[in-house]
């Protein structure tokens, strides 16, 4: 049995909204310890993963291992229909396995129930990297304000939706996008005096090419947290992470473009 309390505008809802146009299904695994959501776009160029420990999720109840595929569009449409003041609960029960119920209860105790058929997610085969992998395969990381990151992603994506580059040295971070009529460069210098807001940490310079469209899709999600952390590798996908609550986190991976 699973009961997942949701609120319009919470991280779960935000992630679902963000991936609405990228993927049809979110693969959700729930245990007594918490929730793990994974969604991959249809071209397999971007993955988003949401980890939400039970202690950060007020009212979370799960007494067994549950692995389900949630139809994203149905869920988002239902949440959009709800009122901001509604208490929303996603339920998967033993008696109605194969379906999920989304219950909305208003402050006046009026209720609306949506029932969806679960879908096959087939995402178990994606195994995302752990901390050890990130330390060994990623040459650098950059911490920056999420609002600033979102602004850059929007700028890059507006300018050139196909080809962008992130470069980092121990002195600066550079974003670049190629548009049809020109290019855009954004440069951040490492500040000596305040490294709490912006901090570069690199073992060696890294240059990574990617499609800015995908990064822009996820950038809004990261504003749920004040800071984002970018992990950069010469050989592996770009990873962006933000912390949610005490121990929760959102990660996205964007597949690299490789120069011939």
């Amino acid at each position: 049995m699973l009961e997942l309390p949701l609120v319009k505008g919470d991280p779960f809802h935000h992630v679902m909204e963000a991936i609405l146009d990228l993927s049809d299904v979110a693969h959700v695994v729930c245990t007594t310890r918490g929730l793990n959501l994974l969604a991959v776009d249809t071209k397999h160029l971007a993955i988003v993963s949401l980890l939400f420990p039970a202690e950060d999720f007020k009212g979370y109840t799960c007494d067994e291992y549950i692995s389900i595929g949630i139809p994203i569009r149905d869920l988002v449409n239902a949440i959009r229909c709800g009122d901001d003041k509604d208490t929303i609960t996603l339920k998967v029960g033993e008696e109605n396995f194969g379906t999920i119920t989304l219950s909305f209860v208003s402050p006046e105790k009026n209720t609306v129930d949506y029932e969806f058929r679960l879908v096959d997610a087939k995402l178990e085969r994606f195994r995302l990297p752990d901390r050890h992998f990130l330390r060994s395969k990623y040459q650098g990381s950059v911490k920056m304000p999420s609002v600033e990151f979102r602004r850059i992603c929007k700028c890059l994506s507006n300018f050139g939706d196909e080809y962008g580059v992130i470069s980092v040295t121990d002195e600066d971070l550079t974003y670049f996008a190629k548009g049809t009529d020109g290019d855009v460069y954004v440069e951040y210098k490492q500040q000596e005096e305040d490294t709490t807001i912006f901090k570069i940490d690199v073992r060696e310079p890294v240059r990574l090419a990617f499609n800015p469209k995908y990064l822009n899709t996820f950038a809004k999600v990261f504003t749920l947290s004040g800071q984002v952390k970018l992990f950069l590798s010469k050989t592996h996908p770009l990873m962006v992470e933000c912390k949610i609550g005490q121990k929760g986190r959102i990660r996205c991976f964007v597949a690299p473009k490789v120069e011939p």
Partner: peptide, 14 residues
């Protein structure tokens, strides 16, 4: 022009 790689080759567990 650069070649777009997919995520399967990085995170695909057999």
């Amino acid at each position: 022009s650069p070649t777009q790689k997919t995520l399967d080759r990085f995170f695909h567990s057999s």
